[in-house]
């Protein structure tokens, strides 16, 4: 598809963001998104299906998201499309966690 991922030759992307001594993951959630996606590569989705899922992100969103935000989008999309985890289940679980947190507070 002629999507936002097909970047070769595009202009105005700015200087190369060179970061000294960067960590492998910049936060725990990045590590988890990576690991959950990796864990689905064989049993559920071919790697190319995961790549394609991130390309299906709307162009404006793709170009304003970080690398692991795009992975998260692909993961959620494929989990939903393959009826493994629905968006409603995710929202319900977030609500549970939020409520539990507020009870502790």
């Amino acid at each position: 598809m002629n999507g936002p991922h097909d970047l070769g030759g595009m202009h105005s992307m700015g200087p190369i963001p060179i970061e000294e001594n960067e960590p492998v993951f910049h936060s725990e959630w990045e590590a988890k998104v990576f690991a959950m996606s990796f864990a689905t590569f064989v049993n559920y989705f071919p790697v190319d299906e995961t790549r394609h899922a991130s390309e299906r992100m709307p162009p404006g969103e793709y170009l304003s998201s970080s690398y692991y935000e795009r992975w998260l989008y692909a993961l959620e999309l494929l989990l939903a499309e393959h009826n493994l985890v629905t968006p409603d289940e995710i929202e319900a679980r977030i609500a549970e966690f939020t409520q539990a947190d507020s009870l502790i507070d």
Partner: peptide, 13 residues
């Protein structure tokens, strides 16, 4: 080609 589906042939090629 301009498939609406997945391809590893980039536009610039």
């Amino acid at each position: 080609i301009h498939p609406k589906t997945y391809t590893r042939l980039p536009r610039y090629i």
